[in-house]
């Protein structure tokens, strides 16, 4: 049985160096190994985790423990997903060490400026089963565990919920947008916990899971009613008849406003977005050309297509519970 490390999570704040960008979708952690695509997931229903004893300015060990409990609770409380978490105690073991413990704690990594947190997952390359996952928060950055946040300090709970999403098997979602204003480029907004960039220090608006996050965790750990209560959209993204890889496909439920997305993940341009509530959907396709392809596809050998224009499908797609709406073909044009 071969095992290898997979680095999956980076939450950074290198906002000034980015151009305008966007968008949307849940994204599962996977690896292509020997021609097989392996999706990562825990096999046991309840995952135990430990909290490292180290405290940092603004956050005590007890506060870190409390914040992580709330972060995991958000994922555990998803009604259409079956995954649980249990605190197993504090430990002196450091995160990011392969020791059989799922350890969460602070590490001082000043050389990783702008990196707020990271989740390191070890998995079985044959089955995709996660065997260990550690989360570290960079103590070189200013943190706050205050309920209402603190000016000039990053909200630990927001980042903790994001890292917990990697912990359960989700990759980054591009559901966010940077805008240029008065010569500065800043994150204007996001609609997925799994967006790879954090809100400004002091802002606490992105602690709760969004529809994209809920659909993602539910697709990994579907509860009994998930398959019958939700539907899916399948189709292709093509340019001049050729399939595109890595195109973002966003589905907007026009009744609820929920945004859920997915990627085209084959050379044929095939995509699938699951976990959709029944209703009418507007479909939008776009390239991930602004935010950095490596935030979503860590394997540089993956040929992600980005040279096309954002495009709306000129019809609604109707989703009904328990079924898949197929043949949703979106033709895009070059930029």
């Amino acid at each position: 049985m071969n095992r290898r490390f997979l680095f999956v999570s980076v939450v950074a704040l290198l906002l000034a160096s980015l151009g305008g960008l966007s968008v949307d979708a849940y994204h599962l952690q996977f690896a292509d190994i020997d021609g097989r695509r392996v999706f990562l997931r825990w096999m046991q229903p309840t995952v135990r985790y430990s909290i490292n004893t180290r405290a940092v300015p603004g956050v005590t060990t007890a506060q870190l423990q409390s914040v992580m409990a709330r972060a995991f609770e958000r994922w555990q409380n998803v009604g259409t997903a079956a995954i649980g978490f249990q605190f197993s105690g504090v430990t002196s073991a450091a995160p990011l060490e392969f020791d059989g413990l799922n350890t969460i704690g602070f590490l001082d990594e000043p050389e990783l400026e702008g990196l707020l947190g990271l989740t390191l997952t070890t998995f079985d390359t044959v089955t995709g089963e996660v065997v260990e996952s550690d989360i570290f928060f960079n103590s070189a950055e200013p943190w706050s565990a205050a309920a209402d946040g603190e000016t000039d300090r990053f909200d630990l709970e927001s980042v903790a919920v994001h890292e917990a999403g990697h912990f359960v098997g989700l990759d980054h979602s591009p559901l966010g947008f940077f805008e240029e204003r008065d010569g500065d480029v800043r994150l204007a907004g996001a609609e997925a916990i799994m967006f790879p960039f954090a809100f400004d220090p002091g802002n606490i608006g992105l602690r709760a899971l969004r529809a994209d996050d809920v659909a993602g965790v539910s697709s990994i750990y579907p509860d009994g009613g998930f398959a019958t209560a939700t539907g899916a959209i399948e189709g292709r993204v093509t340019l001049g008849g050729a399939g595109l890889y890595g195109a973002h496909v966003l589905a907007l439920n026009v009744s609820t406003g929920a945004l859920v997305g997915g990627f085209s993940l084959t050379g044929n341009g095939d995509f699938r977005i699951g976990g959709l509530e029944p209703g009418r959907y507007v479909i939008r396709v776009e390239p991930i050309d602004d935010i950095g392809v490596d935030n979503f596809f860590q394997d540089p050998s993956i040929p992600v297509d980005v040279g096309f224009r954002p495009t709306f499908l000129d019809r609604f797609v109707s989703v009904t519970a328990g079924s898949t709406s197929g043949n949703v073909d979106v033709q895009v044009a070059t930029q």
Binding site: L187, E191, G205, L206, L252
Partner: peptide, 23 residues
């Protein structure tokens, strides 16, 4: 009108939304 909105990167627990596109 149904706007496709993101949570705004602004102070407060319920910041103003950022409009991605309008329907």
């Amino acid at each position: 009108t149904r706007d496709a909105t993101f949570t705004g990167n602004s102070p407060g627990a319920e910041p103003d939304p950022f409009v991605f596109f309008r329907v």
